[in-house]
């Protein structure tokens, strides 16, 4: 078993990391922060450590297949993708470049979490009235005047919001 990160491992990590996310193809897996490591097990055999965004994320299998394909094309014969849960993925693992791309794609990026505790409870009768952290900005017009429509949106990792300035609805990559 090889210990430490070799030059080849770093190169293979780059190759695997350049694979686009199947659900958010503007992001690479490296920018999403879900690729943990690539370990060389043999001259042409590697083990890849991948962590899910959400435990039930259905994109995980597609990610594994895409990583295998990318590494096969890079001359690696034997690729094993292993799912790791620890440490748990957080939206803080999305790189600054990834956040910029999300915004350009029309998805409000997650805010940086202050701590890893549970989400703040808002017991307003209908929609969110107060935001104790920085506001979620509209990815279209940049306005901070936005409201929550639903905590759950097109995928488990997003919430649905609406901009009160330009009236456009948009997805928000919610903090986890």
């Amino acid at each position: 078993m090889v210990t430490g990160t070799t030059t080849l491992e770093a190169e293979l990590l780059r190759v695997a990391g350049s694979v686009p996310d199947p659900e958010l193809p503007v992001l690479t897996l490296q920018e999403l922060g879900v690729l943990r490591a690539v370990h060389l097990r043999d001259a042409d055999a590697v083990e890849v450590e991948l962590t899910p965004t959400y435990t039930g994320c259905p994109a995980l299998e597609a990610m594994s297949v895409d990583i295998e394909r990318a590494l096969h094309e890079h001359g690696i014969r034997d690729v094993t993708v292993r799912t790791v849960l620890t440490p748990a993925w957080s939206t803080d693992d999305i790189t600054p470049e990834g956040r910029r791309k999300l915004r350009e794609f029309g998805i409000a990026p997650p805010r940086v979490r202050r701590d890893s505790g549970p989400v703040a409870l808002e017991l307003g009768p209908t929609r969110t009235l107060t935001e104790e952290t920085e506001p979620v900005r509209c990815p279209h017009c940049g306005s901070a005047d936005t409201e929550l429509l639903s905590r759950f949106s097109s995928t488990a990792c997003k919430a649905l919001r609406r901009c009160l300035a330009c009236r456009e609805p948009f997805d928000h990559f919610k903090e986890l």
């Binding site: 899910p52 435990t55 849960l85 957080s90 890893s116 989400v119 905590r151 986890l176």
Partner: peptide, 14 residues
Amino acid sequence: LAAKAVKEVAYHRD
């Protein structure tokens, strides 16, 4: 698993 899922369940509870 619990460390991962507790963050998801926080949204369910909310």
